[in-house]
Simulated assay, not measured.
Amino acid sequence: MITIETDGARVLFNPEGGHLDLVEFVVDGVTLRPMHRAHWRTGEHNDGVPEAVDAEAGITLKSLAGDFFCAPFAENDTGDGPYHGWPANGMWDLVGQHEPEGGGVTARFLLRNRVLGAQLFKEITLRPGHPVVYQTHRFVGGEGAISAGHHPMVRVDGGARLSFSAKAFGATPATPLESDPARGRSALVYPQEFADLSAVKLASGGTVDLRSLPGPDASEDFLLLAEAPGHRLGWSAVLAPAGGFIYLGLRDPRVLPFTLLWLSNGGRDYAPFSGRHKSVLGVEEACSFFIDGYRASIAPNTLTARGYPTALALVPDGERAIHFAFGAIPAPAGWREVTDVSANATAVTLTDCGGESRQMPFRGDFLGAME
Rank of each mutant, 00 (worst) to 15 (best):
M1N: 10
T3E: 14
E5P: 03
R10C: 10
V11D: 04
F13C: 02
E16G: 13
L20I: 09
L20R: 05
V23W: 06
E24G: 09
D28R: 12
V30I: 14
T31H: 06
L32T: 06
R33E: 14
A38Q: 01
W40S: 01
R41W: 01
T42K: 15
G43Q: 00
D47T: 15
V49H: 14
A55H: 13
A57V: 09
I59P: 02
A65S: 14
A65L: 04
D67F: 05
F68T: 11
F69G: 00
C70I: 00
A71R: 03
A71N: 00
A71L: 02
P72Q: 04
F73R: 05
D80V: 06
H84R: 05
N89F: 05
V95M: 09
Q97P: 02
E99P: 03
R108I: 13
R114H: 11
L120G: 06
L120T: 05
T136W: 08
F139L: 02
I146S: 01
H150T: 08
H151W: 01
V154M: 07
V154A: 09
V154K: 08
G159M: 06
R161P: 08
S163A: 12
S165F: 01
K167W: 13
K167M: 13
G170P: 04
A171K: 13
T172I: 06
P173L: 00
P173T: 01
T175Y: 12
P181M: 00
V189G: 02
P191Y: 01
S198C: 03
T207F: 12
S219L: 04
L224D: 13
E227H: 15
P229S: 05
W235L: 03
G244H: 06
F245E: 04
G249E: 07
R251Y: 15
D252P: 06
D252T: 09
P253K: 09
P257A: 02
L263V: 10
S264C: 12
R268Q: 03
S274C: 11
R276C: 02
R276P: 03
S279T: 13
S279A: 15
L281M: 07
E284G: 00
E285L: 09
A286M: 10
A286T: 12
F289M: 12
D292N: 14
Y294Q: 15
R295H: 11
A296D: 07
A296P: 05
P300A: 08
T304N: 02
A305R: 12
R306C: 07
Y308D: 08
Y308L: 06
T310P: 03
A313I: 00
E319F: 14
A321S: 15
A325M: 05
A325D: 06
I329Y: 03
P332N: 08
W335Q: 08
V338C: 03
N344I: 00
T349G: 02
G355D: 05
M360V: 11
F366Y: 11
M370N: 14
E371S: 15
